[in-house]
């Protein structure tokens, strides 16, 4: 029985690892590639590496949808083609994919996840003629071939908070976040600021699940918020689908971010802050085509159209709430509202 403690500790460690991260080994999938055409110009080639799946209704999907939009705007696969590897939770796998794409001569390689930063820092100098982009961050490592991009997620968070405070009857709001950092933290801080600016009596309860993938933790967090009196919920990262399921069942309102989550529960999703990375991607591609391979950091926000608050058409939003949201959007764009964030 000497092995027992060993097995026990292995199990617990394994469980901890599993609950924290999600390691899919799905093979890189190829987007439909353009047939060889007689077009005089070679298409612009983009490769992207993403942590979750392209249809997560959150972070990775926002990038996938943006690439589709850019491709369409540039004139289809003849002008721009892209490939992706999704579900790259394991940073080592992602690093290998980034290096592979670089070796294959892609024009722009996007490392869509702040966890890929240190890998990129190692890889980018080996391919000085290839352009890399990573987010969400503002750090280009001072390298001439690295772009950085991030989302001012607190802005849409603020607008969602304004609407949530106006719609709540109990004056209690619940927020479900993954880990207290980066994009998620900024969104939550923005949401709280917006809610409290609208109604100082409103109480915003926040829970962090400690995981981007633990759907059942997000669901139980939603249950707990509802038990504590919340009648409007929001949350960020891909595990919130569990919370949306609970919100739908218990008929409380939901505000989404990163991607449009209305399809999950058309009756209770009020609005979503949707990321439109195409605003940033178009500028990067333009710079690359004119010989600048990096060294610049971009931010999407409400003012530049990279973030859009999209109302769910199937939700009957009272006019005064919508007006308050529109005023907040305009004030943020004009710089009249400044949102304090930790970072």
């Amino acid at each position: 029985m000497k092995r027992l403690p060993l097995i026990l500790s292995l199990l617990v460690v394994l469980a901890l690892v599993m609950s924290g991260c999600n390691s899919t080994s799905s093979a890189p999938t190829q987007a439909p590639q353009a047939e060889a055409t007689q077009a005089p110009q070679k298409p612009f080639r983009v490769a992207v590496v993403m942590p979750s799946s392209i249809n997560d209704l959150a972070f990775s999907q926002s990038m996938y949808d943006a690439l589709i939009a850019v491709q369409k705007a540039m004139g289809g696969p003849e002008a721009m083609e892209f490939v992706y590897s999704d579900g790259m939770y394991v940073v080592d796998d992602a690093a290998a994919a980034i290096r592979d794409y670089a070796s294959q001569g892609y024009d722009l390689i996007i490392a869509h996840g702040s966890q890929y930063g240190s890998s990129l820092q190692e890889i980018a100098p080996d391919f000085p003629n290839t352009s890399f982009a990573w987010g969400t961050t503002v750090d280009t490592f001072g390298m001439p071939n690295v772009f950085a991009y991030e989302a001012a997620s607190e802005e849409g968070g603020y607008v969602n908070g304004v609407m949530a405070a106006k719609l709540s009857k109990s004056d209690v709001l619940g927020v479900i976040g993954p880990i207290e950092t980066g994009d998620a933290q900024r969104y939550v801080e923005g949401f709280i600021a917006g809610a409290q600016a609208t109604n100082p009596n409103v109480k915003v309860n926040v829970t962090w699940t400690g995981s981007f993938s633990d759907v059942s933790a997000a669901a139980e967090a939603a249950n707990t918020h509802i038990a504590a009196g919340a009648d409007v919920l929001t949350g960020t990262a891909q595990m919130v689908v569990g919370a949306i399921g609970v919100a739908k069942e218990k008929n409380v309102l939901w505000f989404g971010t990163q991607a449009d989550q209305s399809s999950l529960a058309p009756n209770i999703v009020v609005a979503n802050q949707v990321y439109h990375w195409e605003v940033v991607l178009t500028q990067m591609i333009d710079l690359i085509q004119h010989g600048t391979l990096g060294g610049k950091a971009f931010t999407i926000n409400l003012a530049n159209g990279g973030e859009v608050v999209e109302y769910n058409p199937q939700f009957d939003l009272p006019q005064d709430v919508k007006d308050a949201a529109e005023t907040a959007i305009q004030d943020i764009k004009d710089g009249k509202i400044k949102i304090e964030v930790t970072k």
């Binding site: 199990l11 759907v215 689908v241």
Partner: peptide, 19 residues
């Protein structure tokens, strides 16, 4: 309980069960 499916949705639950 969740009424949804997502990739790796159990997120380590099965290992906790073994423990």
């Amino acid at each position: 309980l969740l009424n949804v499916f997502q990739q790796n949705m159990t997120s380590g639950l099965g290992f906790i069960a073994v423990a």
